[in-house]
């Protein structure tokens, strides 16, 4: 009890007193020199080399650590995904919808339907992290514009990307494991 109280007083004592700023000098209130100083900086920048990227004409290639839109890895013409639904379960924004079905392949299961609602996705990468098959990874794509809500739902046609194109990210993931 006593301890609590002493902590409380300590806390009160540690409060900083209200600061009164020093009044400005008359030279400082006479603001023309300050404006001239600012102009000088601007003018020197005008003659320095430009470093603005001419986007969208000039594209940016993000590093492998970049989290662009999630895509499905396609290997030998089929998705690696076994439709376990873990990505759908972990997705904090309920963006993923998976419907499993049976395949003759030895993996037994595959997704007949795999949809990511890109309007819901928050690019957290949880789906990539939880996937037991390394079947869903974050790509480098970040340009997503739609003219209609329904266009934001990406099906397998838009999600499947050949494994060769995702080498960077897959290598990065292996390194970080």
């Amino acid at each position: 009890m006593t301890n609590d109280k002493s902590q409380m007083t300590n806390y009160m004592e540690n409060q900083k007193p209200i600061v009164h700023r020093k009044d400005l000098h008359w030279w400082e209130m006479f603001y023309i020199p300050q404006i001239i100083g600012g102009m000088k900086i601007t003018l020197t920048q005008v003659f320095r080399p430009k470093f603005t990227r001419q986007y969208p004409e000039e594209k940016w290639n993000p590093p492998p650590s970049f989290r662009g839109r999630p895509v499905l890895v396609e290997q030998n013409g089929v998705e690696r995904c076994v439709a376990c639904g873990l990505c759908s379960r972990v997705c904090p924004s309920l963006a993923i919808d998976v419907q499993a079905s049976e395949t003759e392949l030895s993996k037994e299961r595959y997704p007949v339907k795999f949809e990511i609602n890109m309007l819901r996705c928050i690019f957290c990468g949880f789906c990539e992290e939880v996937c037991p098959e390394e079947a869903i990874v974050m790509s480098k794509e970040f340009e997503l514009t739609f003219t209609h809500q329904a266009d934001g739902i990406f099906g397998k046609d838009k999600l499947l990307i050949p494994v060769e194109k995702l080498k960077d990210r897959l290598e990065f993931l292996r390194k970080m494991r």
């Binding site: 439709a83 376990c84 639904g85 759908s88 379960r89 499993a100 079905s101 049976e102 299961r109």
Partner: peptide, 9 residues
């Protein structure tokens, strides 16, 4: 019921 749905869904 095979592969129809996950139990948690």
């Amino acid at each position: 019921f095979r592969f129809k749905a996950r139990v948690w869904d």
